[in-house]
Design a protein around this nucleic acid. Sequence first.
DNA 1: CGCTACCGTGACGTCGAGGTAAAGTATGTG
DNA 2: CACATACTTTACCTCGACGTCACGGTAGCG
Lengths: 154, 154
Amino acid sequence: MSSEHMQIGEVGARTELALRTIRHYEATGLVAPSACSQGGFRLYTREDVARLKAIRRMQPLDFTLEQMRDLLAVTDRLDSDEEMTAYERQSLLRRVREYEEHAVWQVEKLRAQLAEAEEFAQTLRKRLSRDRDRDRDRGRDRNRDRDRDRATTS
Amino acid sequence: MSSEHMQIGEVGARTELALRTIRHYEATGLVAPSACSQGGFRLYTREDVARLKAIRRMQPLDFTLEQMRDLLAVTDRLDSDEEMTAYERQSLLRRVREYEEHAVWQVEKLRAQLAEAEEFAQTLRKRLSRDRDRDRDRGRDRNRDRDRDRATTS
DNA sequence: CGCTACCGTGACGTCGAGGTAAAGTATGTG
DNA sequence: CACATACTTTACCTCGACGTCACGGTAGCG
């Protein structure tokens, strides 16, 4: 809980990522803790946390960890104020463009999935009301059961 | 291509599932072919295909295969006209309700993911236009590069 | 010093999906 | 009938993204 660094538990709490996942991301080269205690504890800054949150936001886009690593590297490079050849800039921008395209069509896919999912949930709901009706028809003489049903449904 | 049965290739084409996946589903108890040639080829009916399509629709809801197997079994049982105790009906309906709840909150999650994904795509788009502008500012003397950029962006 | 909560590594498991290989089956043609 | 070749079968392997388990080290407090 130092003002500068926090250890992995805190980071997990803030990002809502499993500690295992955070370590895994490090192993895959996505986010390395900015520091390390002399005892070997990972120490993270708020920036590290922000990076992890960014990764979290990418997840639904169905990027592989490798792609995210690449994209992060690319944007880091673009954000850096170091010298860069025009050629390098072009190629970095092209990569961003590719990822953006992937993202767009992944958004499409998500939209479609959402529609299907809603439809399916609707189907389930219909089943429930239909079967509840059938149940009422068959079970006029079993009021206890119907009451239990009502209780768990409301 | 008999009028009644088709073999796995046909089924794959109709459901857009990989043959491997169809077999996998069978191995996990999700859908068994209704028949079998004397040589051991799987033979499916249109109903089997419908079942597979239903499974496909469930996928975005993030059910495990086991849960789908269970849900299919439950609805099969409910659809069957066999005798059933009130207790069994209640317990089946309760399970459907649980799945429906899962589905609802999964739909929520999808919606949230979609929002985050769109936001991220938007961020990427902004990056692109911003960096394109910066590129224009720095590279007035390199028209070829700018033209290439325009070409791949439109 | 010892306590407890937290953290480290490493090996292995899981889950859904799919690849690959070697062998068997269905079917049309000469 | 023999043969080609298209499709299938099973068994096993790979992969990504974690989860789980075991076991030991560390931080920091009284």
